[in-house]
Design a protein around this nucleic acid. Structure first.
Lengths: 256, 256
DNA sequence: CAATCTTTGTGCACGCGTTCACAAAGGCAT
DNA sequence: ATGCCTTTGTGAACGCGTGCACAAAGATTG
C-alpha cells in the first residue's frame, strides 16, 4: 500500500496517523500567520479556532509529535512552526515538475504557496512543441522529450500532472520510471502506480458535485417545509433556512 | 430488506454516508466512460477496479442508493448513470459564479469538467476594474459591485472563491448574504459561515505538503535500509535535496 | 512556600467507515 | 423444472478517528 501505514507501534515513535498529517499543514498556516504578527505563544483553543478544528483534536494531533506545549501557558509559536515544518519535511528543498502547461498548469506555476513552503518548480513540461521555450511564471517551458533528463538532473521526486485525462497515465508512467515517487494528479483519471509511489488526487468537478448533492438536499428540505407552511409563490427555491448544515467542512482529498 | 425502498426513496439523502457521497462522482465518471464505449452492464468488480476502489465498498455504497443491480449479471450502466446523477443532483442545472479571476480562476473558467456535469458558469467576477468587460473563456468578467445582482438574477446558489486569501472572507460574506449556500474555497483561509452554508476547501499547497511528508518518510527508510544492505543502485529512491537530514537540524528558535 | 488558576496531554468511550465472508437471488444450460 | 454458476446485497467484526472529561503540570499570586 502506498500511503497506508504498516505495522508500526503507534506509540511515540513515528506512527503519526494519516488524518493528523493532513491537518498539520493547516496548523502550520495558522501558526505562520501568528508568527508574522509576532505572537509569542498560543493556546490550543486559540490555535484550533484559527485553524478551524476542535481544540481536543489539535492537542491530540500535537501529542503525536511530542510534548511541545507548556501547561498553563500554551505553545511557543516559533518552536511549533519549526517542529511541524520539520515533521512535514519542509525544512528541505523539494524540486517539483509540472507536466501539462494548460490553464491549470500555468496557474500552479504562478501559485505563490509553493515557494514559501520549500517547494521549487524545477521545470514546466508540455508535449506541445510550440510551447517549448516560452516563459510561464518566469520559468521556461521544456518539451516532454526532456522529461527524464530534467528529473534526473534536478533530483525531482515529486511530480504534478495537469495534462488532459488521456495523457495522464502515460505521463505518470514516465515520471515513475524516471524516479518520481510522489504524484499530485489533477487529471480526471485513476492512475495506476507501483507500490512505493504515492498519488494524491484533486478533482475540481468532484468537489462541485459533492456541493451539488448537499445543495439539492437543502433545496428539498426547504421545499418540504414549504408544504406545511405555505409561502409566497415567487419565493426562490433556495432558502437559507435555519436547518443545520450537513457537516461543516470535511477534507475531501483522498489518498490513492 | 429492512429499509423499504420505493420508486421514490422518501428519505434518500438521509441514509447516505458522507464518505459514500464523496465517491459517487468517482463511480459516475467511470460509468460515463463505459457508457461512451456502449458497455451495457458492468460487475462490481470491474467497476470498482475502474474507479480505483474496493469492490465490497462499491457494493455497499450502491446499497445505500437502492438495489440497482442484478445478481449474477451486474449493474446496468445507463440506469446506474442516471440514478447516481439524480442522487447527486446533476440532472438539474447549477449556475455558479467564480470570484477572483486570476490564473486559477481563469483555469477554472476554462475547465471542461463543469459544463459536462450540469454546472454552468453564470458569471466571472473580479474586483479589478481593469478586468471588467474582458472575456475569459468566452465569458465576460463583471465587476464585484455587481455580485449581488448577478447572484439574484441567475439564482446562483454555488460560489467558487479564487481570490487572494485576504479577500476571501469578505467575498464569502457577500456571497452568503446574497443567497449563496455552497462555497468552494481555493483561498488559503478558513472561512466562517453561518449554519446551513456548506464550505469545501481545496488547498494546493496542503496536498503537496502531505506528499512531502510521505516522501521524507520514504527517503528516511531508504537511508536506513542502506545501512544493512550495502547498495542497491537501481532501487535507491532519490533523496530530496542535498540538504541535511531531518534529525541533523537545529531549531531556528529554541524556547528556554 | 502554599494555594490557586490555567492549560496541556491523554485514557476512554463512541460512532463511522472499511472489509470480510456468505447466504440469497437471478441467469443459464440441460 | 432442476441444478449449477455467477454476482449482488448485507450482517458482523474490526480498526481508525473524534470528542469528552479529567488528572497532571507548570505558572502565578499572595
Amino acid at each position: 500500500m502506498a500511503t497506508g501505514r504498516n505495522h508500526r507501534p503507534a506509540t511515540r515513535s513515528r506512527g503519526i496517523p494519516e488524518a493528523t498529517v493532513a491537518r498539520l499543514p493547516l496548523y502550520l498556516r495558522a501558526l505562520t500567520a501568528l508568527s508574522e504578527r509576532s505572537v509569542p505563544t498560543v493556546s490550543s483553543e486559540e490555535l484550533a479556532s484559527a485553524a478551524g478544528v476542535n481544540s481536543a483534536k489539535l492537542r491530540k494531533d500535537f501529542s503525536y509529535l511530542g510534548s511541545y506545549g507548556t501547561r498553563g501557558v500554551g505553545y511557543d509559536v516559533e518552536y511549533l512552526v519549526y517542529q511541524i515544518s520539520r515533521e512535514l519535511g519542509l525544512t528541505q528543498d523539494w524540486p517539483v515538475v509540472i507536466v501539462g502547461i494548460g490553464n491549470l498548469g500555468a496557474a500552479l506555476a504562478n501559485y505563490g504557496g509553493f515557494a514559501s513552503r520549500g517547494f521549487r518548480v524545477a521545470a514546466l513540461i508540455d508535449a506541445d512543441p510550440a510551447l517549448a521555450g516560452r516563459q510561464v511564471a518566469g520559468i521556461e517551458v521544456r518539451h516532454v522529450d526532456e522529461l527524464e533528463s530534467i528529473i534526473d538532473t534536478n533530483g525531482v521526486s515529486i511530480g504534478v500532472i495537469t495534462t488532459p485525462g488521456g495523457a495522464a497515465q502515460q505521463v505518470c508512467d514516465r515520471l515513475v520510471a524516471a524516479g518520481v515517487t510522489s504524484i499530485l494528479n489533477f487529471a480526471p483519471t485513476v492512475l495506476s502506480v507501483p507500490d512505493g509511489v504515492d498519488v494524491r488526487k484533486v478533482d475540481l468537478s468532484i468537489e462541485l458535485q459533492i456541493l451539488a448533492f448537499h445543495e439539492q438536499r437543502k433545496a428539498a428540505e426547504a421545499l418540504a417545509s414549504e408544504v406545511s407552511e405555505p409561502l409566497a409563490p415567487d419565493a426562490t427555491p433556495r432558502g437559507p433556512g435555519r436547518d443545520q448544515g450537513p457537516d461543516g467542512d470535511i477534507p475531501a482529498v483522498m489518498p490513492a
